[in-house]
């Protein structure tokens, strides 16, 4: 079966969008798929907006950069303004409703999965897990690969200094996947 998915993951620097992009791509590779990951940074080292694009495919991948993605994980308001209108028709929008008003996404011809990732991360005891919550929601909604594949790849993208946090990250992925709006 041919599989092709692409997703733009966008938010503030510090929200961990690059990390979950890496994680998703790495997990795809472990699944034997072709993957690409490309980051786009602002000129700032810290605090600016950041996004990355991940493509996962059973076929050879052409472009690693996508203008109209099938899916988008939007972590903040500027990212919704920039990428929301570019999502393919009937595509998927994972929207962080902790920071973005769901009303703003109404009218987009896409399936919206609203999820308050900050609150869920807080409830798990670590505010920085918000990125994993969002990725969990995306993996569940897109069906791009089993959540276990993503959880299993955590050890490859989390630096050794934070290895002890892998179970907590896996839990956050699960919480995002399980969330019912």
């Amino acid at each position: 079966m041919n599989l092709y998915q692409d997703v733009i993951i966008a938010g503030f620097g510090g929200q961990g969008v690059m990390l979950i992009g890496n994680l998703l791509a790495y997990a795809g590779m472990e699944q034997g798929l072709n993957v690409t990951y490309i980051p786009v940074y602002g000129p700032e080292m810290r605090g600016g907006t950041a996004n990355c694009t991940v493509v996962v495919s059973s076929e050879e991948i052409g472009s690693p950069i996508i203008h109209r993605p099938k899916s988008c994980i939007v972590m903040n308001r500027p990212s919704l303004d920039k990428f929301g209108p570019r999502i393919e028709e009937n595509g998927l929008l994972i929207l962080n409703t902790s920071l973005v008003d769901l009303e703003l996404a109404k009218g987009l011809p896409v399936k919206v999965v609203p999820i308050p990732v900050n609150e869920i991360a807080d409830s798990l005891g670590n505010a920085r897990l918000l990125n994993m919550v969002a990725l969990g929601a995306y993996v569940n909604a897109s069906g791009v690969m089993p959540l276990q594949a993503v959880q299993g790849a955590l050890g490859h993208v989390i630096s050794s200094h934070y290895k002890h946090l892998i179970p907590k990250n896996a839990e956050a992925l699960q919480a995002g996947a399980d969330y019912k709006p």
Binding site: A25, N34, Y37, P39, P64
Partner: peptide, 9 residues
């Protein structure tokens, strides 16, 4: 910059 910055297997 695309080739340099992108990641692939």
């Amino acid at each position: 910059a695309i080739l340099g910055q992108m990641k692939e297997p």
